[in-house]
Amino acid sequence: MLAKRVIPCLDVHAGQVTRGLQFGRAEASGLRNVGDPVELALRYNEQGADEMVFFDITASAEGRKSMVDVIERAADQCFMPLTVGGGLRTVDDIRTMLRAGADKVSLNSSALATPDLIRAGAEAFGSQCIVVSIDAKRTAPNHWTVFTHGGRKATDWEARDWAQKAVELGAGEIVLNSIDSDGMKGGYDNDINRAISELVSVPLVASGGAGKLEHFAEAVEIGHADAVLAASVFHFGTFTISQVKDYLSERGICVRR
């Protein structure tokens, strides 16, 4: 049986893993350094993470080059799926990351600016390595607006419409990151997760809001997520990945042990 995945996300700023509240901005002082990305990746690898996401939180805002070196070092030691996101704008950017050892790339602002990047990436490397990551905020009842630039700029897209468009263009997976829930530890936004999971044919990764063990189970049971992604609860040691997996397993959810 296909297991539900537990995915730690490493937000990387200037080569260090950082974490802030609600889309904390790299240039603001609200970020805390939590360590070397490769060391953390190895720790998660040991704990049984199902895959890992490295996200360059500065790249999109400041046009900074992404972290080829981090990916190479991680890929050389962790034999598990790696996704890279942040500031990838061209097919060449995607190729560079895949060559460095990434299996998937996560496109966000750049895909909204140039939707054709999704198609071009999927054609060149296959849909399976093109993940479209959506930052969504509830702006009206039953309406979620897609934002870019770390949650600072609203777009004209409704999250479900954009998810559907992205899949049509060739996205092989959708990550839904709730701006409202991010960093708040109050649970995932299961409404939007479920709506998108039922709408699109590709896997949905729930992101933003995990604070308790129950939240991971709810994301699967209520939000119909295929995978759950979290950052701070793992970085700060609130839970280990194995604790989350033990809990999900007790609730009857299939996880890899």
Binding site: L2, R5, P203, D226
Partner: peptide, 10 residues
């Protein structure tokens, strides 16, 4: 089914 199958299976 979600297609592609992405993830860990037995």
């Amino acid at each position: 089914l979600k297609v592609p199958q992405i993830g860990w299976n037995t």
